[in-house]
Structure formats: C-alpha cells, structure tokens
C-alpha cells in the first residue's frame, strides 16, 4: 500500500497510470451520457405539473452535483499536497478547477432557464442559489490566485489554503435547502430514502449523474497528463515523449 502511494507521487509512474485508466472512463462517459440523454429527453414521461420543462433536471442536477464534488476533490488534493508535499496532488487540483467552475455556471444557467416557467423568475436570492453563486466566485478566486502567482511553490500553497477554506461552502450548499425554507426544492437523491419520483424518471437521471462523474474522471486523468508534461518538461523521460 505504501509503495503504491509512493509510486503515485512519481510523475512518470502517474503519467502512465493515467494513460492506462483514461480510455475506459472516456468510453463509459460517452455511453452513459448518450443513453441518458436519449432516455431522459425522449422516453421518460412528462411531469404531471411541470410538463416537459422538467427535462432540464437531467442536465441541471448532474452539473450541480459535479460543481460540489469537483470542489471537494480539489480540497482533498490540496490537503494531500499541504500535508505530504506531493506535487501530483497540486497538479490534480490545478486541472480540476476550470471544469468545476464550468459545472457551477451550468448549474446556475440551467436552473435560471428552468426557473422562468416554474417559479416565474430567472433569479431570486434563495439560499441555495446564493450559495451556488458564492461557489462560482470561489472557483474564480482559486483560478485567479493560481494565475496571479504563476508557477511557483508559494502560489501552490496559497491556492491549497484558499481551497480548504472555500470547502466550508459545500455543506452550506448541501443543507441550504433544509436550513432555509425558500424556493429551491430539496435534494432529488439521498442515501437514506427512495427518490420522490417514479423509476422511469430517476433512472435516466442517475445515468446522467454517473456519466458526468466518468467524464470528470476521464478529463482529469487526461489533463493531469498534460500538466505533468508542462511541469516536468525539463526531465529526460518527458522529452522522450516527443520522439
């Protein structure tokens, strides 16, 4: 186990491991999202109150879940980087950030579009929406801070600390629908009970969520390899890649 963790810290070994893992995740993501899209757009039944406008849920919920999961992943990577000084962890946190920011924006965007026909407004200062907007600013802050420092170790530490502080917002997002009883509805999926919708509705949603997770994993593995090339470009083994 320890030798495995030790090896994982080696950029060369990590590069080849990511290369071996990523095709499977790309294929899984493509299949799940393709099947999930067709199922949720054409085959799942319309909602008895919201009609077909509810089909936005199939992109809204996966992006909103990923917006949070990506930040938690970044926080874990940041903690690993700060405690054990493993450079790979910092590289992983770097490559995850833009995708997380995009997912947060997409969650807000699809939510707004859904809000117009269902709530009668595209924006309201509801607790969930506000917490999500703060999350978007946290992502932008993390990306901007890294950009401001360029590529040096002090900057990496500062970004890791900001990410760990920012992760406080995640439980606030999660429990915002419970603590403040405003417009946004409670979670669709919980670990303790069955979803309050028929299987023909939640099954494609689950497939979409899994597809988004696979996509995130595949993209992270792929871009982690890019980041390794970028940061280790002076080493002999990276230069050998261009042969």
């Amino acid at each position: 186990m320890w030798t495995f963790i030790h090896k994982l810290g080696s950029p060369k070994w990590c590069y080849s491991l990511c290369g071996r893992l990523q095709p499977g995740f790309w294929i899984a993501a493509l299949l799940l999202i393709a099947v999930g899209s067709v199922w949720s757009l054409a085959y799942s039944p319309p909602d008895y109150q919201m009609g077909n406008s509810y089909r936005i849920i199939y992109v809204h919920v996966p992006s909103a879940i990923l917006a949070q999961s990506v930040f938690v992943s970044m926080a874990i990577a940041s903690a690993v980087f700060l405690i054990w000084k493993i450079k790979i962890a910092d590289m992983a946190a770097t490559v995850m950030a833009p995708f997380g920011a995009a997912m947060t924006f997409l969650g807000l965007f699809s939510g707004s579009l859904w809000g117009v026909p269902t709530w009668g407004t595209w924006w309201t200062w509801d607790a969930r929406l506000t917490a999500m907007l703060i999350q978007l600013f946290l992502y932008i802050g993390v990306i901007a801070l890294r950009g401001a420092y360029g590529r040096n170790d002090q900057g990496a530490k500062a970004v890791a600390v900001l990410t760990l502080v920012g992760v406080v917002n995640i439980p606030i997002i999660k429990y915002s629908v419970v603590w403040w009883n405003t417009l946004h509805q409670p979670a669709t999926f919980t670990l303790t009970s069955r979803p309050a919708m028929p299987e023909s509705m939640w099954m494609p949603l689950l497939i979409m969520v899994l597809g988004f997770y696979c996509f995130f994993t595949a993209l992270t593995l792929y871009r982690l390899r890019n980041e390794i090339i970028r940061r280790e470009s002076r080493t002999r083994w990276v230069q050998a890649l261009a042969e």
Partner: peptide, 22 residues
Amino acid sequence: MGGYAKYVWPAWGLTLCALIGF
C-alpha cells in the same frame, strides 16, 4: 417540448457543448 423548447434546448445545448468543448 410541450411549449418549453426555449428553456429546455438552451439548457441542454450549452451543457453538452461545454462537455464537448472541454
């Protein structure tokens, strides 16, 4: 989309375009 085309398609379109874009 039962009259909801202008909400459903942009939400889906931008999300899928973002994934392809990444």
